[in-house]
């Protein structure tokens, strides 16, 4: 038997092979090993090695006051009344909605399952056109006002960034090449699911766009990405929707935001077949089963085995495996179903 403690001395390539064969303790050890090594490098290791008490996922919103600094001024925390600054209130409300979705849907206590506090920084930098997750917290720019506007006020952006945290704690997918594209894919998947829940849409009403509310009228496009039609959201959108057009370049960490279009399209197609809630459950359970170096084929294989398990428990539609097979076949990733 391979326990978490024993696996630390086993070489990562062996852990990976065991993880691919479904050994979940080895997968956990593989992910933990990578995460701990990274943490050591960033000098936070001592905090991680402690057995942390379960928290309650409280929200803290800081105002960066247009400086390139995080945690500058705490302006709102859990339970406090709204403030005058709408960016602060939006970051507070939307991160609360994401937390509630994961709690009510999957029983997840905050983004790490252990009640990690949810920390947001708004008004970061000057005319800063970005939002990011740094391993501990989210940071949002106001946008330059010409092409982009407040990133903290968009539910799909907030969900996307928070799900980078979920992915970090449950699969720790590397941020390059195919594992990186999967990392982006999961953030777009739950970004779009949570956006539809927030807007009380069904899949027929939804636009399947990511970041449509952070682009201005001057921006040459309607959004940052499209799950329904990758590559069409704006003039710069080069996302492929099929493996035939897979990006092999070195840019964007070997295309993490580019090749995510391929599984994104498959997710959209699968939702049309079995609905977004069944897909959400299958994708979430799959995320938990993946490991640091998982590639597209690993994910498809895991989606199929996860769906088979969930069908046997009567938790998803009986045609879920067929829906996954058909959806991924259409983007050039035909799974082998046994």
């Amino acid at each position: 038997m391979c326990t978490k403690a024993h696996c630390y001395i086993i070489p990562p390539y062996l852990l990976e092979k065991l993880a691919k064969h479904g050994n979940r303790s080895c997968k956990r050890a593989l992910n933990d090993t990578g995460r701990i090594a990274e943490r050591r490098r960033s000098s936070l290791n001592n905090l991680l090695l402690r057995n942390q008490a379960e928290g309650s996922g409280e929200r803290f919103v800081y105002d960066s006051q247009n400086q390139f600094e995080q945690r500058m001024k705490l302006v709102r925390q859990e339970g406090q009344d709204p403030v005058e600054d709408e960016s602060v209130n939006n970051a507070y409300d939307t991160s609360g909605f994401v937390r509630k979705y994961f709690q009510e849907t999957f029983g997840l206590n905050s983004i790490d399952g252990n009640g990690l506090d949810i920390i947001s920084n708004v008004h970061y930098g000057e005319a800063y056109n970005n939002a990011y997750w740094d391993g501990d917290e989210m940071t949002y720019g106001d946008g330059d006002g010409k092409e982009f506007t407040d990133f903290a006020s968009a539910i799909d952006v907030v969900a996307h960034e928070l799900v980078h945290g979920v992915t970090q704690f449950f699969a720790n997918l590397e941020y390059q090449s195919q594992p990186g594209a999967l990392n982006e894919h999961f953030s777009d998947v739950f970004g779009t699911i949570i956006k539809q829940k927030y807007l009380e849409q069904d899949i027929a009403d939804a636009d399947w766009l990511i970041g449509d509310s952070v682009v201005t009228e001057e921006f040459p496009g309607v959004a940052i990405r499209s799950m329904k039609a990758p590559g069409t959201a704006n003039d710069f959108d080069t996302q492929p929707d099929h493996m035939d057009n897979y990006y092999n370049g070195m840019g964007d960490n070997q295309g993490v935001h580019i090749n995510s279009g391929i599984p994104n399209k498959a997710f959209y197609l699968c939702c049309l077949e079995i609905g977004i809630d069944d897909c959400a459950l299958i994708w979430f359970e799959t995320l938990k089963a993946l490991w640091r170096t998982s590639d597209f084929n690993d994910m498809v294989e895991t989606l199929v085995s996860t769906a088979q398990q969930l069908i046997s428990e009567d938790k998803v539609a009986q045609n879920a495996v067929e829906a996954i097979s058909m959806s991924f076949s259409q983007v050039g990733l035909t799974p082998i179903v046994v």
Binding site: E38, R41, S42, N130, A131, Y132, W133, D134, G135, D136, H160, E161, H164, Q168, Y175, N183, S187, N253
Partner: peptide, 12 residues
């Protein structure tokens, strides 16, 4: 400079 490999969506 020290790196932070858990950055997601950060600029390079």
């Amino acid at each position: 400079q020290q790196d932070n490999s858990q950055l997601r969506d950060g600029f390079t």
